[in-house]
Simulated assay, not measured.
Amino acid sequence: MKTVLLSLLCFCSMGCLKKKESTPANGSITVDGLIRTYTLHLPPNYREGSDFSLVIAMHGGGGNGGQFESSSRLSQKADAAKFIVVYPNGVKGDGLLKAQTWNAGGCCDYARDHNINDVKFISLLIDHLVAKYKINPKKVYATGHSNGGMMAYRLACELSDKIAAIAPNSSTMVVTQPCNASRAVPILHMHSVQDNNVPYAGGVGTGVSKHYNPPLDSVFQVWSLKNACATPAQVIVNNNSYKLTKWTDCSNNTTIQYYLTKDGGHAWPGGTPGGLPLGDKPSAVINANDLLWDFFQQYQLP
């Protein structure tokens, strides 16, 4: 009887531990005197597995890690595909809403105005998580929505030694210093022609943060030169649903892929409306989580 009870207790404790590891865990690190927080999601097979990829998923301006986890549904994809995802939080503003933003250069709000060093935060966060969890440091990727996508572009410029590839959504590149990536960075960009918050053709959007958004054509021109892409932009698909443009024959076999959907708006494709009940409707013709994971798996740091 004791043996049976002991076995049951052992089974229960292992099961509880496994369940605990596959649920979000809140954590924090201190950067430049600020306590920076994040939510980490481990896949159910974490105990048995090893050599995990890490996806850094950055929320849009005014959002937070928990909200982005819910609206993007990226943790469900992480569980199915067996990778680790972390949702870091931007710094809180001093306004009434305490909106959390990223300093991506020319955007956004409190983080930009107070020159918060978010590149340092993400760099130290990577070091912290790689030391604590079974993460392959060559398989670290960044994605983000809106202001979070802008931050992904800044990471590609300034942290290309730690970020293997990026997948921004509904964003543009707003760096204010020359982009000095030390290597070619694979880029998957997703956008909607109906996105009025960050217009794909450039200009000031309808969002709360009234800043100029460089047109995406100029962003891809910069990166196609940096990545030394021998083949110019080629339209692979152009139908009633979306347009897919690719830059290939780039340095170190990298590519740039640009999905421009005809449906949706300023929202995460395949997610919930803009992360808010009254937000833009997400694109239904592509799924951001499927696309980014298929893309990320093709690349790792040398």
Rank of each mutant, 00 (worst) to 15 (best):
G275R: 05
N287P: 01
L54D: 05
N169T: 13
G90V: 03
T206F: 08
C107Y: 02
M173W: 05
D113K: 08
R47K: 15
S170Y: 09
S71Q: 10
L155N: 05
D79V: 07
S50H: 11
Y212P: 03
F220I: 14
Y200W: 15
V86A: 07
N26K: 01
A230N: 11
N45D: 08
P168Y: 04
P199G: 11
Y153H: 07
L124K: 13
C108Q: 04
N103Y: 02
T254P: 04
P269W: 04
I84Y: 09
V174R: 03
C10A: 15
N238M: 04
G271M: 06
T23S: 14
V91R: 02
V119E: 12
V175L: 12
Y46C: 12
C108V: 00
E21Y: 09
A267H: 00
H145D: 09
T143A: 07
L125E: 10
H189I: 13
S283F: 04
M58V: 06
N89S: 04
V91Y: 01
F296T: 07
S209H: 11
C107V: 01
T248K: 02
D195I: 01
G275A: 12
L159V: 11
L159W: 06
L188C: 12
H266P: 05
L8G: 03
A131K: 11
T255Y: 06
P273R: 00
S70V: 15
A164G: 06
Y259I: 07
V4E: 12
L301H: 03
P43A: 15
L97I: 09
G62M: 04
A230C: 09
Y242M: 00
L260V: 14
V119H: 12
V140T: 11
L125V: 13
K226R: 14
D217T: 14
F296L: 09
V130N: 10
A57M: 12
F295A: 13
T261K: 11
Q67P: 04
I256G: 00
E48R: 03
G202Q: 10
L96T: 14
H59W: 02
S123K: 12
N252E: 13
G275K: 00
P273G: 07
W102M: 01
F220L: 14
G275F: 01
C229V: 08
G202W: 08
G93R: 00
T3I: 15
R112K: 15
G33L: 00
T3L: 15
G49Q: 03
Q177Y: 12
M151I: 01
N253W: 13
K19G: 15
S22F: 07
V204N: 04
L74P: 02
Y38W: 04
H191E: 11
V4Y: 06
G15H: 03
G62F: 01
P273S: 09
A99I: 05
Q221F: 08
L244M: 06
G144Q: 05
L188A: 10
L216Q: 06
Q257W: 13
